[in-house]
Structure formats: C-alpha cells, structure tokens
Amino acid sequence: METEDKAKVPADLESRISELIDTMDAAERLAVRKKPHCSPVCISAVAAAILVASLLGIRLRETNVPADTFSDPELAYSAAEKALYDITGMAGKAMDRAGKAEKAIVRTKSIFD
C-alpha cells in the first residue's frame, strides 16, 4: 500500500496515451480506406462482362468457320498433296536460284583471285 502511494506517474503520460490513441485511430481509418471495395453488384458485373465477351468470342469463331471444300477425304488428300508439291516445287526453284548465285559468286571470286 505504501509502495503504491510512492509510485510516480510521469507528467506527460496522459498526453502520450492520447497521442498513441490518435495514431491508432488514424492507422485504422487508413486501413479501412485501403480495403478493396468489392460489392456483390461489382462481382456480378465482372462475371456478366466476362460471359458476354466469351459468348461474343464463340459467336465470332462460329461465324468465321468456312465450309469444307471437299466432302471426300481422297479428294482432300489429293488437294493437300498438290499444295505440298507446289511448295516443294517453289522451294526447289529458290534453292536452284541460290545454287546458281553461289556458282556465279565462286566464278567471280576465281576471276578476281
């Protein structure tokens, strides 16, 4: 009982406690302000927008699919084979041209050397 009476209370304790409370209050207000606002309306709006966009995407894809030119796989195979032959033929011409150019370079070099 005697020691309790002798304990000294700092003079600025009251102001320090008050300052601490103010700081905590300010921090809390800041935290509340930063909390993301995500209401059910907002979530539904995002979901609806994604749904509309994906449906639109599917619709675009569907309308853009052309009809097969051939209904017979053998004819389709022949057309694919012809296309590959065309590519091979063109590549062959290009390689031939490159080969001729190489020969011309070698010939030119031999003249200059």
Binding site: F70, P73, E74, Y77, L84, Y85
Partner: peptide
C-alpha cells in the same frame, strides 16, 4: 479449305495412294 475434321478423317484412312507421283507425301499430310 480443308478442315481439321477432314484431316482427322484422312489420318484414320490407312493408305491413300495417288498414282503418278514419285514422292510420297503421306507421312507429311
């Protein structure tokens, strides 16, 4: 236009040989 479905059908057929060609493109097709 040859669709992916048609190519799937082509793949399911064992062998289609087109005569008169000297190179076999079946593997690539």
């Amino acid at each position: 236009y040859i669709s992916p479905e048609m190519f799937a059908l082509i793949k399911s057929i064992p062998d289609i040989n087109v005569e008169g060609k000297d190179v076999d493109l079946g593997k690539v097709i």
